[in-house]
Design a binder for these strands. Structure first.
Lengths: 206, 206
DNA sequence: TCGTTCACTGGTCACTTGAACAGTCTGGAG
DNA sequence: CTCCAGACTGTTCAAGTGACCAGTGAACGA
């Protein structure tokens, strides 16, 4: 990209450049895959959004499949970091307040990262190799961590409660363009986010 | 397909054959579009699932775009028929029972037709021509019919309540393969459907 | 019975797709 | 300064992609 024409040491090292480029590609991939699905997203469009050419994708990630995995790793990683961060700040609260606040934080995360839910829905639909990878590599771990967060009952209702939480807390933001046109509400506004977070939290922890 | 080799009048007329073929194609299109999205679904795969060849799709529907619209019409039409049917059976009930039962019926519909939600999410993600068509042609009408169903509050909470209902009542069934692998629960079992319908109804109408 | 209509087939078109690869240029080690 | 690993580019290739269209044969009207 930016050429070093002087003889001073470069602002960024080669390794940093490389990492930055990879990062840019993964970011574009998250967007594209979440908007168009695996088959619908083309590596050329991803390269275009990342500001490079298609050949570079094969270079950094061996295949479209590997790029998709990197994209999934990234979005799930962001969720986990956010949850962990929030957990330490809620040390001494009583269980109900804790649960409500964790739900609120989950909703806020979805508002900022609608790609997470889109990935889950996109991949959950068909019983293919990517769905199995996503479940085994990431979702199982998240699902089993739920009781530690002080959320929901163990037992036969757990799957239902899980998908109610995920659905209720995510769809509004995942279909933001549709919501704007259908209802006039802008789901990305601070007000809408907090209203929704509060509604979901109060519904699930009365 | 089946040739008439005798000289008796055919079992089905030409017009019936035509309609049956169109129907088969639309059905396959609903499946494919809901699994793979608009760009990810290929007309050849749709033709294959419908048991014909790709040329026939251009013959019956001018373009992939028109086929997609026919698929959307079909799935929304099925929802409306189901809702209307349920409404007449709930004539004399009190409002809360009515609302709960309408929610239950909505959940049951999603269990049998996960394509509806997939269509909504698939199209709601990006602000393109198909999303606008879907909102203007179908969703606006559905959204504005909600108060007549005795559901949810008008006012500023309506968009939030709408997307909570849609999300909570649909996701479990839309990602059924994922759910089976992740939780062990089979969302297509009668027991799971009724449990989920009851949970959502009780959450939204306490 | 005959001629026409039309649902349907199979092949072709220009174009896009993911992958592969031979080059190019440059940061950084020696 | 020299030189090379390696980040990056542009092109090429086979396998799809949606649209189009000339044919085919059975159903149907006369």
């Amino acid at each position: 990209m930016a050429c070093q024409t002087n003889n001073l040491p470069p602002v960024t090292t080669r390794a940093e450049q490389r990492e930055e480029t990879r990062e840019r590609i993964v970011e574009a991939a998250v967007e594209c895959f979440s908007e168009r699905g695996f088959r619908g997203a083309s590596t050329r469009e991803i390269a275009g959004r990342a500001g490079t050419n298609q050949g570079l994708i094969t270079y950094h990630f061996r295949s479209k499949d590997d790029l998709w995995k990197a994209a999934a790793d990234r979005i799930v990683g962001q969720l986990e970091a956010r949850i962990r961060e929030r957990l330490v700040r809620l040390g001494g609260e009583d269980p109900r307040t804790r649960a409500r606040e964790m739900i609120r934080e989950f909703v806020r995360f979805n508002a900022g990262h609608p790609e997470l839910f889109r990935f889950m829905v996109e991949q959950g639909k068909s019983d293919d190799i990517r769905m199995r990878w996503l479940v085994d590599t990431h979702l199982k771990r998240l699902y089993e961590a739920i009781p530690q967060l002080g959320l929901g009952a163990e037992g036969p209702l757990k799957p239902h409660a899980f998908y109610v939480l995920v659905g209720a807390g995510s769809v509004l933001f995942s279909v933001a363009p549709e919501c704007r046109r259908l209802t006039g509400l802008d789901p990305s506004s601070q007000d809408a986010i907090e209203t929704h977070a509060d509604l979901v939290a109060r519904l699930l922890v009365p």
